[in-house]
Design a binder for these strands. Structure first.
Lengths: 130, 130
DNA sequence: TCTTTTGTATCAAACTACTGATACAAAGCT
DNA sequence: AGCTTTGTATCAGTAGTTTGATACAAAAGA
């Protein structure tokens, strides 16, 4: 499954950006812990059925973002989430279970996945303040 | 403000898709009620500083999606949320409150908005089955 | 009927992105 | 040292998107 990364070629969002986003969220949320090794650009590209350069671009941007780090022969490892300055432990188990609960609720209500994402985006935009 | 629509040219997501998403979420969430008139393609394009054809494409896709409808001279109006087939009244109250709860949880955990969307997208993709 | 407004369609040019291939650079392993 | 793995870089070809312009179609209003 290569960490559950997926790419939708019919999505207007370019593949390298889809990969970058998914890895970014996995790291930020703690599902990929610091020290974890990411799949090699070639193997991930092969699994996804895309070109290696596309995966390489996603990795490059993630490295510039400070989320991952490239040792040459050692592959690419997770450095850590951008936040989590001290002992906050990035305790996002609650967030993950809330997301899963939302997915269940949405599917019970026959709300499509895309609509659900749009809905979340809309609610976020209307709550700029805390 | 033209309904608060914004476009970020530095975003890898193409502008027509940014517009489509924002309008889709505004409609799905009820902030644009059925019957509302959208700005004309020319005026919205002018306000955003982009070409009319780009806005037209967003409108076209929204119409194919069933969210809006084009009267020729009357402009473009909101038809309604995609679901709500019969009397279900688009009963997404549960979904909306679940979304709001998720947002609260995420912000308590200091998870950024973009990360939250990425996380939801990742969890949806990894749950193709029910 | 004529004019105006609005959505739709088309076109070529420019730009970006993805691909597939190839080559190179770094670093661990034998 | 030599080999292998891995990330990085480059290239030409293809495809998708935006732009700016233009033209057309439909429909309301004078």
């Amino acid at each position: 499954m290569t960490a559950g990364i997926t790419v939708d070629l019919s999505d207007p969002v370019p593949p390298y950006e889809q990969i970058r986003r998914q890895l970014s969220s996995l790291i930020s949320v703690g599902l990929l812990e610091p020290g974890s090794r990411l799949p090699t650009v070639r193997s991930l590209a092969a699994d996804l059925g895309i070109a290696a350069g596309t995966v390489a671009r996603a990795y490059k941007e993630l490295e510039q973002q400070g989320l991952i780090e490239s040792r040459r022969r050692n592959g690419t490892i997770v450095v850590g989430p951008p936040q989590a300055p001290d002992g906050t432990v990035r305790a996002d188990a609650a967030v993950i279970s809330a997301v899963d609960g939302l997915i269940r609720t949405a599917r019970d209500a026959r709300v499509s996945d895309e609509t659900l994402i749009d809905l979340l985006r809309g609610r976020l935009a209307s709550k700029l303040d805390s």
